[in-house]
Nucleic acid binder design. Structure first.
Length: 283
DNA sequence: ATCCCCACCTGGCCGC
DNA sequence: TGCGGCCAGGTGGGGA
């Protein structure tokens, strides 16, 4: 499910409970996630303390003392829950719980039905990790701006939709927020990204607008996510994702929500993924 | 290099 | 109520 705002919310939820907790026990499922479990994962992390939690794009970085970091990605269906430890009863694993970490006062469980998630362990700088090092700038950061973005579109020849899904161009966006940002910018998802820059690689007005709208939609979604945080460690533990209503995503055949547009939301497939847009107002 | 497509999985939903 | 088919918010890797 998770794109940048959801991952940010998960990160904040984890942060609230598990900082300064020491890893006491670890369960790994016999099934692997997207990749095999890191070698000697359990023996390497048991006894270490969680000192910080960060987010980079859709990755969560759980740093331990002695310079180890767990790098985790939720894939399509991953979720964490945190439960207060029950002294009289061990945690009973649910179906698809693939990693359960027993801390001093909490149980942290990672559940992932589709197992597209990803968990690695590194003792180098997390930013130098092979996947993190390829990531483009974060929305809402200074390095995400129209001039640099225009520069990275130079010599590119593909749709703006597919371009924005490329994590090396801008990181953290997924199918939903790309559709929503393009709608807010009134840009047709099929438009070639080269049309948003001048021949000299400078940003056109639409690209400037797009940068602003990406930031806007991401910020709104993070703000909404914050309000779901209190559920993070409830007794059933399941963290809810957003109930944000979208303007175009999953609204095929419905009316464009823009006043006096009158268009109907269409669904097309680009590179095998659904794109939702209003062909009337997105040009 | 650049771009596209596939594979990796399970579960939910829809139509018959 | 059952079953087959289709769809799903991600992304690394391989082939064109």
């Amino acid at each position: 499910m998770p794109e940048l705002p959801e991952v940010e919310t998960v990160k904040r939820g984890l942060e609230e409970f598990i900082i300064n907790e020491t890893i006491r026990k670890v369960y790994l499922s016999e099934l692997k996630l997207r990749f095999p479990w890191p070698k000697n994962f359990i023996s390497k992390v048991v006894g270490k303390k969680i000192v910080s939690i960060k987010r980079r794009a859709k990755y969560i970085i759980i740093s331990l003392n002695q310079d180890y970091s767990i790098i985790a990605h939720l894939g399509m269906s991953g979720s964490y829950k945190v439960l207060k430890k029950n002294v009289t009863q061990d945690y009973i694993r649910l179906k698809h719980d693939h990693l359960v970490i027993e801390l001093d006062n909490f149980i942290l469980a990672y559940n992932d039905p589709r197992r597209f998630g990803y968990i690695d362990l590194t003792n180098e700088e997390p930013e130098k990790h092979k996947f993190l090092s390829l990531l483009g700038p974060e929305p809402l950061s200074n390095s995400f701006n129209e001039n640099d973005l225009a520069g990275s579109l130079l010599n590119k020849n593909k749709s703006i939709k597919n371009t924005l899904l490329d994590q090396s161009i801008v990181s953290g966006l997924g199918n939903i927020y790309v559709c929503e940002a393009l709608f807010r910018s009134k840009i047709n998802p099929k438009k070639n990204c080269s049309k948003l820059i001048t021949s000299k690689g400078k940003p056109r007005q639409k690209l400037i607008l797009l940068v602003n709208k990406i930031n806007e939609v991401i910020k709104e979604a993070i703000d909404v996510g914050g309000s779901t945080l209190r559920d993070f460690s409830s007794t059933d533990g399941k963290m809810g994702y957003f109930q944000t209503s979208f303007n175009v995503y999953d609204r095929e055949g419905e009316k464009c929500l823009l006043d006096d547009c009158g268009g109907v939301i269409k669904r097309v497939v680009q590179s095998g993924r659904s794109t939702f847009f209003c062909s009337n107002c997105q040009k």
